[in-house]
Design a binder for these strands. Structure first.
Lengths: 105, 105
DNA sequence: TTGACCCATCAAAAAAACTCGATACAATCC
DNA sequence: GGATTGTATCGAGTTTTTTTGATGGGTCAA
């Protein structure tokens, strides 16, 4: 049984956070570095409450962190969570098909 | 601009398919090898139409393939799609923080 | 203090996802 | 043939997610 070695709830949470195009867009924009909500409103053109909502989903999944400075909230990507997500996806990857010739001997 | 290098729609489709615990459970079970719907009904205990529905979502995302044999439909994981998913997640991973000391010199 | 600004949160509406039972269909068995 | 089995699909109902506009809190500048 390999199934037990899979962290099902965590995979679902992380993937759920990345299941919406708007949120993936946000992540893509944050690859350029820290941004405040108003920057993101310009980049994507989305309403403020909509962005706040999606940022909250990303934050609750642990994929982004926020920092307040005066009136602004700055968001950044949480690198560790993306590393984790990659590892969890890898845990779902079946080993190479046995129908392929082995390349030994 | 790094954002343009990210395949936003594909990430959303793949993650959406893995955003539901039932579907991740199915994938986890398929790690043990090909199974028919009735096998999965036993493993998870879920109704038949529910499983068909989730299998369809997984199939449309390209994560599983099916094969008909007589009355049975056998499902398997599509390794390539999981490799792709891992790469796409990696494309969202920010480079290591600049605040860490570089380990050169 | 007043007013402008950035943002989080709320309530309501709209849209999408999910579940369940029923039906349909093809393959097998008698 | 008729009955049974394994599965896909449909429709209705429910639940969850997403969007939108409104409200309010905190910050800053005049």
């Amino acid at each position: 049984m390999i199934a037990e070695r899979v962290n099902v709830p965590r995979i679902a949470i992380l993937c759920n956070a990345l299941a919406d195009e708007a949120r993936v867009e946000i992540v893509a924009r944050l690859l350029d570095g820290e941004k405040c909500v108003c920057d993101l409103m310009d980049d994507l053109d989305a309403g403020q409450s909509r962005l706040s909502y999606h940022l909250k989903v990303l934050k609750e999944a642990g994929l982004v962190a926020d920092r307040r400075e005066g009136r602004w909230s700055y968001y950044t990507l949480e690198r560790a969570a993306f590393v984790e997500a990659g590892e969890l996806i890898t845990s779902l990857r079946p080993r190479a098909s046995r129908t392929l010739k082995t390349n030994c001997c």
